[in-house]
């Protein structure tokens, strides 16, 4: 039951994000920085591969690591001659997968538990601290928690407030 639900939803998302107008031209893969990022190219997880497989056989791949490679950087979406909204699709798809409990390829904020980034990306950044330098505790907590912890910190640093004047 749950399985067919997710398939239907994926089908809808395929339509919503124009995936069916894909002409399989391969421009998205050719501009995808993933190649430089992970140092290798695999059709399975290229934008085109994902689009084609999801449009043709959405049943097969609701639990694949290949879906957790995209950086959602928007390069492919910008250059797509057919107007496929791959980035939007990927974000919605991950949302959908998470809602359906697919958590094993993702990293979550240890504080609030919200989705942080794909595990693959997280591992990559951790593996090479040089490249991850400057990203700081972004790796550890989600931006929202980071902001609220800043706020908390400020509260702690300046515990005495001037009383607000009530009119």
């Amino acid at each position: 039951m749950e399985h067919s639900d997710i398939t239907t939803e994926i089908k809808h998302q395929v339509l919503d994000h124009n995936l069916n107008v894909c002409l399989e031209c391969g421009k998205c893969s050719a501009v995808c920085p993933m190649l430089d990022f992970y140092g290798e190219y695999a059709y399975q997880r290229s934008p085109r591969g994902v689009v084609e497989r999801l449009s043709l056989a959405p049943d097969d791949i609701d639990d694949e690591e290949a879906l957790w490679y995209c950086l959602t950087c928007q390069e492919c979406t910008f250059f797509c001659p057919s107007g496929v909204d791959f980035q939007g699709f990927m974000m919605d798809l991950r949302d959908l997968l998470l809602r359906h409990g697919h958590r094993k390829y993702a990293v979550f904020c240890p504080v609030c538990g919200s989705y942080l980034m794909p595990k693959k990306e997280f591992e990559y950044l951790q593996k090479d601290p040089e490249r991850a330098k400057g990203l700081g505790d972004l790796l550890a907590v989600c931006p929202r928690c980071k902001k609220s912890s800043y706020a908390e910190l400020l509260h702690r640093m300046a515990p005495v407030h001037k009383k607000m004047k009530h009119i």
Binding site: N18, N20, V21, L23, E24, S55, L56, S82
Partner: peptide, 13 residues
């Protein structure tokens, strides 16, 4: 062709 694609006709090479 674009119209056919948008209507959901699948084209496989």
């Amino acid at each position: 062709y674009q119209k056919a694609l948008r209507m959901g006709v699948r084209f496989i090479r």
